[in-house]
Design a binder for these strands. Structure first.
Lengths: 252, 252
DNA sequence: GTCTATAACTAGATAGAC
DNA sequence: GTCTATCTAGTTATAGAC
């Protein structure tokens, strides 16, 4: 498509170059430009759909720079992910431990536990500016990413949080079975990570009554919803199969 | 890589060909092989990560066959999606209308409404055989697909169901605000479509106490969870921001 | 540290022989 | 209906000039 002779263009540039030498600070700036641009694109289109070229175009840097600063596409993803997720998970762990030691006794209020888990994720995206919305999108997309190596990156950071969360819920709901807690927290995960401002789903479906970018509202509704849901699993223990669903099987 | 001369290979084949002529039934078989293989691959790796070539390899057919039977990759996706989703959504609509007319009066039990929405999705994948698990995976992945054209395919089928679902919940919870119902059903969607057997998450995280492929168990726990959660949103209307969330802001 | 140029490969799609 | 061969345009990645 491009008929320019690059060598000629280079020769011209050579003549009038102000000899701007690369510096360390310069490298850091490029690195951050790449991180920000890649986060934006991964958030919007998903990991596999985004090419290295589109990232460099968005960041306004060269194709090779990305390979210089990050060895590969996967390493780049991990760098973005950890930059965002490590503080969130650290806040979760601190919050969960705090919730269990409230007042020095063992009584743990379920709502506080769930709040400790949910809030750091949503709060990281508070403020309604473009950057914070991108953050929510990015992490939601990451949670849904099929790529095996991406899932490994996620699990590595998330597993310790899950252990702590399960233990905290167990104390708050001493009568609940392990199975009930497992399913309940799985649903919790799904509800939390489905909050994705990028697809206009929620706004469209509710005719703008709700806005997925409104993290304050999400938190206000999510915590009571999850608390009641988990308590509902203990109050009405589902021992047998649901009452009205096709009682067709004759044998037990 | 390949040093064979294709023309020579063809000439050999020409000689000993049994002249197997293509038939109509033959075409249908190929079409179905492509649909099944593509569904399997989309379920496992996601839409963008799967190439037409990998589909034809999995199906054991030629690269051109897929373009003959389906015009494009997107059209192929739509064909797979509709084959699975239209019966599910039809069942949902029938169930939701049935739940609202139970006994001829207006009293609608929330659990029945949610059951009518959730069951067709999970029941379509009942049986524990590989094929039914693929189905759940496929639809979960589809729900999380970032690609805009894929999202459009989803929305087209899903919107009428959402309208009916919202109306049914509104009748079952006359005191709930539109905003509360909107958020609550959004969380419902997240919890339901996060049930993905492919990522071993649930089994790993719960040390095999729960199995995401066990759709009977999922249904037993999901409906009570959602029912209690939605009711919880009406019983404790979240007027102001949650009580214990960082009352700091002391400003240094 | 940054960039040009290009290697090495894969993508979706199609024309035309059979 | 099926297949080979091939097109165009895209991909990640790297060597080497500056």
């Amino acid at each position: 498509m491009d008929a320019r002779t690059p060598t000629a263009a280079r020769r011209l540039a050579d003549i009038r170059r102000p000899k701007k030498r690369p510096t360390r600070a310069n490298g850091d700036a490029t690195r951050n430009k790449i991180l920000d641009a890649a986060e934006r694109l991964f958030a919007e289109h998903g990991y596999t759909a985004v090419s290295m070229r589109s990232i460099t175009a968005e960041a306004g840097v060269n194709v090779a720079a990305i390979h210089f600063h990050f060895a590969s596409k996967e390493a780049l993803f991990e760098a973005i992910f950890n930059r965002r997720v490590q503080p969130i998970n650290a806040a979760r762990l601190a919050g969960l431990r705090g919730a269990q030691q409230d007042g020095g006794h063992q009584v743990v209020e379920l709502a506080n536990v769930l709040q400790a888990f949910v809030a750091p994720h949503l709060e990281a995206a508070k403020g309604f500016d473009a950057g914070s919305i991108v953050l929510l999108q990015f992490m939601t997309r990451a949670a849904a990413e099929p790529d095996k190596s991406i899932q490994a990156v996620l699990r590595k950071e998330f597993d310790p949080v899950w252990v702590e969360l399960t233990a905290a819920v167990r104390r708050a709901l001493p009568d609940a079975s392990d199975e009930a807690i497992g399913w309940g927290l799985f649903f919790t995960l799904g509800a939390l990570y489905f909050i994705n401002p990028s697809r206009g789903w929620l706004a469209n479906l509710t005719r703008n009554k709700c806005n997925a970018a409104d993290t304050e509202a999400a938190m206000r509704y999510l915590v009571p919803f999850l608390t009641a849901g988990l308590q509902g699993l203990t109050k009405h223990p589902p021992v047998t199969k649901s009452k009205q669903l096709r009682p067709k099987r004759a044998r037990k």
